[in-house]
Amino acid sequence: MNSVQNPAQVLLVLTTLPDHPSAEALAAELVAEHLAACITILPSAQSVYRWQNRIEQASETPLIIKTTAARYAQLEAALRARHPYTLPEIIALPVTQGLPDYLAWINRATLSEDTTC
């Protein structure tokens, strides 16, 4: 997502954190900075992955971040700067359908100084 085609495009951004307290702290910061409208913190999940040529397993806390394409670059930069992992999972998926009022709320909530949410 190097270029912003439609800045109002709603995105779901996925990431994982090593534990619930770090997920809560990061989520609060991102919402407070209007980089996300809402972040859903899921229960702990078990991840299996290859890292440095070894199969690893870890308990992680997944996050589902609701934002817009206009805020994605800043969100990604904030995640990279604050994330405890060397190579964090940051995957953005476009939302192609949804309740129009909810999608509009995401756009309003990610404006820098919006207070109408």
Rank of each mutant, 00 (worst) to 15 (best):
Y49V: 09
R50S: 14
R50L: 11
R50D: 14
W51H: 06
W51A: 03
Q52E: 15
Q52F: 06
N53R: 15
R54Q: 14
R54S: 08
I55P: 12
I55L: 15
I55Y: 14
E56W: 11
E56D: 10
E56R: 06
Q57R: 14
A58P: 02
A58V: 00
A58F: 04
A58N: 03
S59Y: 06
S59I: 09
S59F: 14
P62Q: 04
I64L: 15
I65E: 10
I65F: 05
I65D: 09
K66N: 07
K66G: 08
K66L: 13
K66A: 15
T67M: 03
T67I: 10
T68N: 00
T68D: 00
A69Q: 14
A70C: 01
A70T: 00
A70Y: 00
A70L: 00
Y72Q: 05
Q74P: 10
Q74I: 02
L75M: 01
L75P: 03
L75R: 00
E76L: 02
A77P: 08
A77K: 04
A78G: 08
R80T: 02
R80H: 14
R80Q: 12
R80N: 06
A81M: 13
A81Q: 14
A81D: 13
A81I: 04
A81L: 13
R82P: 11
R82E: 00
P84G: 10
Y85G: 09
Y85N: 02
T86P: 08
T86V: 15
T86I: 12
L87T: 12
P88E: 03
P88N: 01
P88D: 08
E89R: 05
E89M: 04
I90T: 13
I90H: 02
I90K: 08
I91E: 12
A92I: 14
A92E: 08
L93Q: 07
P94W: 07
V95P: 01
T96C: 08
Q97G: 04
Q97A: 11
Q97R: 06
Q97M: 06
Q97T: 01
Q97K: 10
G98A: 07
D101E: 15
D101M: 09
Y102G: 08
Y102L: 08
Y102F: 11
L103G: 04
A104W: 04
A104Q: 10
W105C: 02
I106M: 02
I106T: 03
I106C: 04
